[in-house]
């Protein structure tokens, strides 16, 4: 790949990580009401761990270094009619706050869009440079 257009690859890495973030949040939201018996761990929320890629000068973007999992204990909810309820009538629900997940989803989406519009801007800049001094 042409290293001269490095800014494109950098924005690309931003898009990848933010997409992974949106995928994780979507997964958390999909499982916000996943019930498990108290004998098992609750559904654990996923958090994307990102780190900047350093090269000693202007940097090379961002990379996903791993996934962190949330609290395995979750919330104990009293629901004696539930088929998975234990002897005391409790089930485990994930420790996921709907409001918090929705606001982080907005952040992730904004970040993704910002990287996409940066790709457009960078592309225009390079095109202007290629046309410079022509004719």
């Amino acid at each position: 790949m042409s290293a001269v257009f490095e800014a494109l690859g950098i924005s690309g890495s931003g898009m990848e990580v933010h997409q992974a973030w949106m995928d994780a949040i979507s997964d958390n939201l999909a499982n916000v009401n996943t019930v498990r018996p108290t004998s098992q761990a609750a559904f654990q929320a996923r958090y994307v761990v990102a780190a900047g890629v350093e090269d000693g000068s202007t940097g090379l973007g961002v990379t996903e270094t791993g996934i962190a999992l949330g609290d395995p204990n979750g919330r104990l909810v009293y629901s004696p009619q539930h088929p998975m309820a234990d002897s005391k009538g409790y089930v485990r629900l994930p420790d996921i706050d709907l409001g918090e997940q929705m606001s982080t989803m907005i952040m992730a989406q904004r970040g993704y869009q910002a990287n996409i519009s940066n790709v457009d801007r960078v592309k225009e800049t390079y095109q202007a440079a290629i046309q410079m001094g022509r004719g």
């Binding site: 790949m1 257009f5 494109l8 690859g9 690309g12 790709v119 592309k123």
Partner: peptide, 9 residues
């Protein structure tokens, strides 16, 4: 994502 970036590049 990667394909889009490759295309622009």
């Amino acid at each position: 994502n990667a394909e889009t970036i490759t295309s622009v590049n």
